[in-house]
């Protein structure tokens, strides 16, 4: 349709207006102004944000499952309440993020439908299993630690509703990261069996955590445009490096070995240099071939399916008890 119209003078004028609008939009971004829901924005900006916020929301919701797996088996009542509160926070993050996504014109219901039908993605990290209690520590320490690295720059994202949601989310994530590290610290100062449990968890979660930052910059298709729009502030590799530099000394403090025989400290660059990441695993998990992809989606579908009659009942009840418009109090 668009290309057909190119020949007409009206279309040429429209095209010019469009490019002016784009320039003005980019100028606002460059001035660090926040873009708000009712402001004009290029369709590609809206779509990029919608994809990213929805993926983020879905990740929070699916992310409740691997940790929820240990709520009933948490080894002390204190650990149990902290874990319940943490998983609940994740549900809350999902709610703010679905609300932020809704400001871009798609309802929560539609977004959830996309998740359940397998069309929408969520973070691949949640397709790994939680096999021992130490995994709850490792998730808090590494997975939430990596999430914070990714998310702190999003508090300055150009889209207002997303940036504001991220401020609150980051505060809670930082608490999650600390509780995870504290679990690891307790285990690493515990019995030989507990130390072995902690090491095993680090062995299994280290590489998937590094992959959470996404493909290397050379292979990241969205990075350049997202950085121009200030949706993204740092590249995948920059954030991954920052995470490694912060986390390796933490592992040393725990007395645990990072499972990377090639890991070395580069004195001149003042960075840790990791060995090569096995991207074939990343792509396999992304394609649905991870250890728990099937289980995670099935669990979400089961909850949604089992809740259908409940949602229908709530809607029917609300309909029966709706106040007629004339019953509203006057004045």
């Amino acid at each position: 349709m668009y290309t057909q119209a190119l020949d007409s003078p009206e279309a040429a004028a429209a095209d010019e207006r469009e490019s002016e609008r784009l320039e003005r939009f980019q100028a606002r971004i460059d001035r660090d102004e926040k873009i708000e829901p009712k402001d004009w924005m290029p369709e590609a900006y809206r779509q990029t944000l919608l994809r990213q916020i929805a993926q983020h929301a879905h990740s929070e919701i699916v992310g409740m499952l691997p940790e929820g797996n240990w709520i009933t088996r948490a080894p002390s009542l204190r650990r149990k309440v902290v874990l319940i509160a943490k998983v609940q926070d994740e549900g809350g993050h999902g709610m703010y993020l679905y609300s932020a996504a809704e400001t871009l014109g798609v309802s929560r219901g539609e977004l959830i439908e996309q998740l359940l039908s397998g069309r929408a993605k969520y973070s691949s990290i949640f397709n790994y299993p939680t096999l021992t209690w130490a995994d709850i520590g490792a998730i808090g320490w590494l997975v939430d630690g990596a999430a914070i690295m990714n998310q702190i720059p999003l508090c300055r994202c150009s889209y207002g509703p997303y940036a504001r949601a991220m401020v609150r989310i980051c505060k809670e994530e930082s608490f999650h990261q600390r509780q995870g590290y504290e679990i690891m610290l307790t285990l690493s100062r515990g019995s030989a069996a507990q130390r072995a449990m902690a090491q095993d968890a680090l062995d299994r979660w280290w590489w998937p955590s590094l992959m959470m930052f996404g493909p290397s910059d050379a292979h990241s298709v969205h990075t350049a445009q997202s950085m121009r729009w200030k949706i993204k502030r740092f590249s995948n590799d920059e954030l991954r490096q920052k995470f490694i530099d912060v986390t390796v000394p933490q592992a040393e403090f725990l007395g645990l070995a990072v499972p990377d025989p090639d890991l070395r400290w580069d004195e001149s660059a003042e960075h840790y240099v990791p060995g090569p990441i096995d991207w074939s695993e990343f792509h396999a998990v992304l394609k649905g071939e991870g250890p728990c992809n099937r289980e995670r989606l099935e669990a979400r579908r089961a909850a949604h399916g089992a809740g259908r009659w409940v949602r229908e009942a709530a809607a029917a009840f609300a309909e029966k008890h709706r106040e007629p418009p004339h019953a509203a109090p006057a004045g």
Partner: peptide, 11 residues
């Protein structure tokens, strides 16, 4: 937790 009929009820 994580299996409720809607997000609000889960929380």
């Amino acid at each position: 937790l994580g299996h409720g009929p809607a997000l609000e009820e889960d929380l």
